[in-house]
């Protein structure tokens, strides 16, 4: 195996060249926190309003609902799009509600590893529903941390992705979320910032939604306070 023998040599040669470079003047540690602190604070609308406005500007459909009403809102979304098979993860905060609400034929659990589930995943499912870790108001983006219950492909392969978001999970910036939730010490295998449905402008700069990922992104935004 020529490659295996060559690699340690390549590594040593690369590091030798890098280490031989003359020192430059020390560079100050970037003050990212200071940058975000010093920016003018947004005003004129609530964080929720800002999130909704920005998310919609990226073609996400945002449905403002409540902790009590969201299952009905979901029904309406599924019916309007004629979704026959909805994929979801077991054991999440929305799983029990989904199980109670949806007929067994309409709900499919993401139970098996991808290798055995692939044909069905790529062929026979209309939509995926996930929880979210929160969202970013500044850009109208969702924060997703796919895991064992809600795999990466749950929000990726189907033409429709439905996300359940609690208003309390809204952060102003990605920086706030990242630092506030201490991401650096506990990065998952995959963390995502998702803004609108997938898209491309590769043909004559004309914007088309549903390039390789979801064509539609529906966000069920559960408002605080008016649950009761």
């Amino acid at each position: 195996m020529s490659g295996a023998a060559a690699e340690p040599r390549a590594r040593a040669a690369i590091f030798a060249r890098l280490r031989a470079a003359p020192d430059v003047e020390p560079v100050a540690v970037p003050d990212v926190a200071g940058y975000y602190r010093n920016r003018a604070a947004p005003s004129g609308e609530s964080r929720r309003e800002r999130f909704v406005r920005n998310a919609r500007s990226w073609r996400a459909e945002v449905i403002e609902t409540t902790a009590g009403d969201w299952p009905a809102a979901l029904d309406a979304v599924l019916d309007a799009r004629n979704v026959r098979r909805l994929l979801a993860g077991r054991g999440t905060t929305i799983a029990d509600t989904l199980a109670a609400r949806l007929p067994a034929g309409r709900l499919r659990w993401y139970d098996a590893p991808l290798a055995s589930f692939k044909p069905e995943l790529f062929g026979a499912i209309d939509a995926g529903i996930t929880t979210t870790l929160g969202a970013v108001a500044e850009t109208g983006s969702l924060l997703l941390w796919p895991d064992a219950a809600e795999p990466r492909t749950l929000s990726l392969v189907q033409p429709l992705h439905i996300a359940v978001l609690h208003e309390s999970g809204l952060h102003e910036t990605l920086f706030d979320a990242m630092v506030g939730q201490g991401w650096a010490a506990r990065m998952p295998s995959n963390a995502l910032l998702v803004t609108g449905p997938s898209k491309t402008a590769d043909i004559q700069r004309m914007l088309v939604y549903g390039a390789h990922g979801p064509r539609e992104l529906v966000i069920l935004l559960l408002r605080d306070g008016d649950a009761a």
Partner: peptide
């Protein structure tokens, strides 16, 4: 922003 920022 882009649609996805994918952190692996």
């Amino acid at each position: 922003v882009t649609t996805y920022l994918n952190l692996i």
